[in-house]
Design a protein around this nucleic acid. Structure first.
Lengths: 254, 254
DNA sequence: CTTTAGCGAGAGCAATGCTCGCGCATGCGC
DNA sequence: GCGCATGCGCGAGCATTGCTCTCGCTAAAG
């Protein structure tokens, strides 16, 4: 049930081939990493000449960009699902537990899709700056983290944080606007004070950088030889970060 | 005053050329990034043929490894200096302030030497795992962080942390041994209980992952458009991390 | 039915990492 | 002081990459 009738046969063929192309590239990246991705190689995998690929994608970097967007959406879905099933549990998880679940899910995704993680959160590929089309997809993880902090605030469970003193006037107005839109949701409930929203936004930053830093350290070997139980160590890092922004993260005894 | 007499002229020439080679590679990396480093290009810069370079270095990756070690030592020196001048100030900085200074120095180094940061903390280059020769140099940053936490403990200024409950039995014995050696120092003072040392080691982990995550986020554009004052936001992240492991970080009115 | 637009293939260009064989010169052992 | 061996630099060459261009063919559009 396509929105527009089966369009032309050509367009269908084109879409189909593009999908195959992306799939092949994804496979090669999973096997060898983004830096090794060779357009000629995926062309060979597909049984077409290398020049034919250029009918469907502008350049190697453009192909990478497509895959970056895919990866952002993938991890976005993973953390959204983790957060959703935490809050949908019976009894619903408190925000601290949700944060822990989200963090574990993020790290788990990165472990399973190392090269996708590298693609989006690792060293940017040589020449290009992240195209603007990617930022929308990148925000999904941020949104989940922000929602968790906001939920804690709403339940009155948010403790004080070391950053409270400097949070005011820190974020750009655009950022706060975006956050207000998220918190307010589609319905216009009682207005949430901007200062509170800003404070919540600032609190999500350490959560994000912790996710990024912990996962990078884990995957890139900076924790090598330090422990036999990486999961437990990462849990400790997550717990510390959660506590630092006022979440109560239950560790150990469960 | 060489330790061994001027050795042979050949050896001196070899050492000299190797130094030139590294310098040229360093320059090119600073200009274009590690991924773009071309052996042929540095050969051209040096006015020799590309094949001549292979007399001095096994491969492109081996050259990268040499530069990785240099970069580790560079950042190690930077953070050591920052910590030293903080504690040497009058009055000496408390551990929380030292941590802030160390964090700022780390981020500052990364900003000034973006490509060096990418080299050591970014996505590992394609095929190879970090050669064991690099780990010794990598520990210097860890040592500074650990010493800061240890100093706070010694002064009785270390607050409780969310990870206290799970810290025991977390780290490998080798890791704790290494830390004991560091804390004990060259002289054999009163024995520090291993459990305390382990707790201190676990506390340095969030500090390191915060450094890594905050710097990665900053340099790789994940904080884009969120604030106009990146320094202040990063300070907030550092403060949160410090507080989460029991350091008192004075921010704002400081 | 004719024209036009899309598409695939192959050759080709400028690079890359790395190997190999050739000569030259330097320095060590005799 | 001399001769051989070793170190060294060079150029050619191979396989690979991203990307461009031209040539036909085929299928859609008018």
């Amino acid at each position: 049930m396509p929105a527009t009738p089966p369009v032309s046969a050509r367009e269908r063929a084109r879409a189909s081939f593009t999908a195959d192309l992306l799939a092949a590239a994804r496979t090669r990246i999973a096997a060898e990493g983004a830096a090794e991705l060779s357009l000629r190689a995926v062309a060979r995998d597909l049984g077409v000449s290398s020049s034919a690929v250029y009918r469907y994608v502008d350049s190697r970097d453009a192909l990478l960009t497509l895959l970056i967007i895919e990866a952002y959406d993938e991890v976005g879905t993973v953390v959204e699902t983790a957060a959703a099933s935490a809050t949908a549990a019976d009894p619903p998880a408190d925000p601290g537990t949700t944060w822990l679940a989200v963090g574990r899910a993020f790290i788990g995704w990165a472990r399973e899709h190392r090269h996708s993680f590298e693609l989006v959160y690792g060293t940017p590929v040589p020449g290009y700056a992240a195209p603007p089309d990617t930022v929308v997809h990148a925000t999904r993880v941020w949104a989940v983290l922000g929602a968790t902090v906001a939920a804690a605030a709403q339940r009155g469970e948010l403790g004080p944080a070391a950053l409270d003193g400097v949070a005011h006037g820190l974020m750009s107005t655009e950022m706060i606007d975006a956050a207000v839109r998220l918190v307010g949701g589609p319905v216009a409930g009682p207005a949430v004070p901007r200062e509170l929203v800003e404070n919540l936004v600032v609190r999500t930053v350490p959560l994000f950088t912790t996710l990024l830093g912990a996962t990078t350290a884990e995957l890139f070997g900076h924790l090598h030889g330090m422990t036999d139980d990486h999961d437990a160590l990462l849990d400790a890092v997550l717990a510390a970060a959660g506590a630092s922004v006022g979440l109560r993260v239950p560790l150990g005894g469960g």
